[in-house]
Amino acid sequence: MGDNCIPIQERKQHPTLWFDDGNIILTTSFSLFRVHRGLLSMNSPVFADMLSMPQPDHMEDSYEGNPLVELRDNDTDFTHLLRFFYDHRYYQGGTETTFEKISGLLRMSTKYQMDDLRNEIISHLALAYPSTVEKYLEAVDPKTQLPLFPPFPGQHFAVVALARETDASVLLPAALWRSMGMPTRDILNGVVDLKGTRYTLSPTDIEMCMVGKVDVYKHLVRAETSLPNKLKKSECIRQEQQGDPSFWPCIEIVRPTVVHHFSSAGAPIRDNYDVLIDMRAFEAWRPHVCDSCRTLADLKILQWRQRWWDALPILFDLPQ
C-alpha cells in the first residue's frame, strides 16, 4: 500500500476517468483510475518505460483483474494530467486557464518528461513573467490583457514556488522581482487568498526579496535625484526660445518637483513599488518639460531599466 493511508478498497473510482475497457488501474491516495496502457505510453516516456516491463501472470498488485500501479502524485495534479492525455484540448497554451490546472500540468509534465507540454506551459507563464524587459513592461501595463489565469492574492509567490519546484528557472527573475515589489508584511508573512490558501516564499527567497527591496529603493532614489543632471541645457527647446542663457525653464520645473517628492511634504513613501514602472518623481515633472528634455530623460530611463533588468540574476542569485 506504500505511503497511501486510505486502503485501496475505500478509494473512489474516478467518475470520468474510469473506462470499462481500460486495461490498467492507476491509483493516487484518494482515487482509482481505469485507463489504457497504450495511451499512457504514447504520451509519456516515463510511462512507456514503466509499462514495458513484463508483468507476471499472477500479480499481487491487481484490482478487478487488472494490474494496479500506485502513484504518489497529488490527486488533483494527476487528474489534470489524465484529462490532458485523453483530450489535448483540455489545456491549450495561450488561452486562459486556471492556476490549479497550469501548475498541476507543469509539475506532472516535468515528472513524466513530457517536454513539449512542459515547454508550452512555461511559455504560457512567461506571458506574465517574461525574460526581457520589453515584454515585462508590456505584461505589467494595466491595458494589457494576458490570456493566462484570473489573478489572485499571492500569485507571484505561488509562481516563484512553482518555478523552483519544477526547475523553470526562466520564470524566476520576473517572478522574484514582482514578489519583491509586494508589501513588506506580505513578503514576511505570506498572502491568504479568498479560499484560505496561504502563499509564501521560502526563507531564502524572503531574505533575498527583503535585501533586494532596500537595495533597489536606494537605486530608485539615486536615479530620481540624478536624472535632472542628465538633461542638457544646450538641447532644451524652451531655453533656446527664452533667449536668456542664464535661465533654464525646464530645470526650474524639474528640481523643485524632485525635492518636493522626497520631502516630508510629498506623497507618503510606499512599501510596494516597482522601479521599472514606478518612478513617481519623474512622472510628476515629465509632462511639463519640453519635448527635447522629455526625450532625453526617457532615453536615460530606458537605459537604466535595461541595466537593472540585466542585474536581476545577480540580485536573486540566479544563473545568468
Rank of each mutant, 00 (worst) to 15 (best):
A267E: 13
I122L: 08
R72S: 14
M42C: 07
F85S: 04
T144Q: 04
E207M: 12
D310T: 07
Q55M: 13
P245N: 06
P150A: 08
G212M: 00
E60I: 11
I314W: 13
Y63F: 11
S31I: 00
N189P: 09
L194E: 10
E64I: 08
L51K: 02
I253H: 00
L17K: 05
Y86R: 14
R255V: 15
S123M: 11
I187D: 02
A126N: 07
P203W: 05
G93E: 04
S62Q: 12
S123F: 11
I253G: 02
R222T: 10
Q9S: 13
L220V: 01
D75S: 11
S31H: 12
F30M: 08
P313K: 00
L220S: 01
H261G: 03
F19I: 01
F149S: 10
A174Q: 01
Q13N: 11
H88T: 10
H14G: 08
D244S: 05
N119W: 04
K111E: 06
R294M: 04
Q13D: 09
D77F: 04
V69N: 05
S264F: 09
I121E: 03
L51M: 02
E96C: 15
L125M: 03
Y199R: 15
T110D: 12
S62T: 10
I24G: 01
R238M: 15
M59C: 12
N66V: 14
E207G: 13
L299Q: 15
K135Y: 13
K300G: 11
K143R: 12
H156L: 06
D291W: 04
L26K: 03
L231Q: 04
L172D: 06
C209Y: 05
Q9R: 15
L302T: 12
L106E: 01
S109D: 00
L201V: 13
M53A: 09
K143W: 09
A265S: 12
K143V: 09
T16M: 14
P45T: 01
I301A: 08
N119G: 08
V170D: 15
D75I: 02
H88N: 14
S169C: 09
Y129T: 06
F262W: 09
E100N: 14
Q306A: 11
